[in-house]
Amino acid sequence: MEHLLGLLSIHVQKGVNLAAKDILGSDPYIVFRLGNQTLKTRVIKNNNNPVWDEVIHIAIFEPLPIKFEVYDKDTFSCDDEMGDAEFDIKPFIEALKMRLDNLPDEAIIATVKATRTNCLSEDSCITWSKGKVVQNMVLRLRNVTSGEIEMQLGWINVPGSKGLK
């Protein structure tokens, strides 16, 4: 039996310059997958620059990469794929394990460099913000002409869980 480490909080902020899949624009939503967990954002109608401002929580049993796909919601046919990406949560988990506190607000704990092998479109900073460790990231979608997703990671300790050691 795997032991729960805690909950990864993903604040899905917005999409930027998503590919148009329909004449009137796309109706995008995001599907996050980790193990047997599948979580979806709501659909934003007719918008290639959607603002979700939505928080989802994924149970973390081990620090595996989080995969997600962006889809265009269609009424009369299968939803169109609008790209996909994945991100590694290991650097974020390692920053959490440092058990930092009393840092100045917005202090940078670590920086994850954007490379050809990850989906980051710019360097991603893990910071101490309002008493918590957070990571802001802009992810470039793969398998599509254009599109980025902006999000922020946070962490929720779950009472009775294994926690981070």
Score class of each variant (00 low, 15 high):
L64E: 14
D74T: 02
I60D: 01
R99T: 08
D72N: 11
H57K: 14
M98S: 13
D80K: 13
D72C: 08
K73P: 01
E86T: 10
A59R: 09
S77G: 06
D79Y: 03
L96F: 10
D79M: 04
K97A: 15
L64V: 14
A95D: 07
P91A: 07
E54A: 05
C78A: 15
D53N: 15
S77H: 09
K67S: 13
A85Y: 01
D53L: 12
A85E: 00
A59N: 07
D84N: 14
V51N: 09
A95C: 12
R99M: 08
D79K: 03
V51H: 08
E69G: 01
I58C: 13
E69W: 06
A85N: 04
I66H: 01
E54C: 07
F87C: 04
I56N: 01
A59E: 15
F92Q: 02
T75K: 04
D101K: 15
L100T: 14
M98F: 10
E86R: 06
G83N: 03
D84W: 08
F76W: 14
P91V: 06
S77V: 14
A85K: 00
C78P: 09
K67W: 10
F87A: 05
I66Y: 02
K73Q: 08
I60G: 04
P65R: 10
E62H: 11
A59M: 10
I58S: 08
D53V: 11
K90Q: 12
P91W: 04
M98G: 09
A59P: 01
K73V: 02
L100P: 11
E62Q: 14
L100R: 15
I60Y: 02
R99W: 04
E54L: 06
D53I: 10
P65A: 09
M82Q: 07
A85V: 05
A85I: 02
T75P: 00
M82P: 00
D74N: 14
K90S: 11
D101G: 14
D101F: 14
I56F: 03
W52C: 02
F76P: 02
I93G: 07
M82C: 06
V55G: 01
E94N: 14
E81H: 04
I66L: 10
I66D: 01
H57E: 15
H57F: 15
L100D: 12
K97W: 13
E81W: 00
W52Y: 04
K97F: 12
E94D: 13
F92Y: 14
F68Q: 03
A85S: 15
F76T: 13
F92T: 06
W52T: 01
F92W: 11
L64Q: 14
I58K: 03
D79R: 05
T75W: 04
G83T: 03
I93D: 07
K90T: 12
H57G: 07
D74W: 03
S77Q: 13
D80T: 13
K97I: 09
F76C: 10
K67L: 12
P65D: 13
F61R: 08
E94S: 12
E54W: 09
L100H: 15
F76G: 12
W52D: 00
A59V: 07
E54V: 05
D80F: 11
F87V: 05
R99Y: 09
S77W: 10
W52L: 04
A95W: 02
T75H: 07
F61A: 05
R99E: 13
Y71L: 11
D74H: 07
I66N: 00
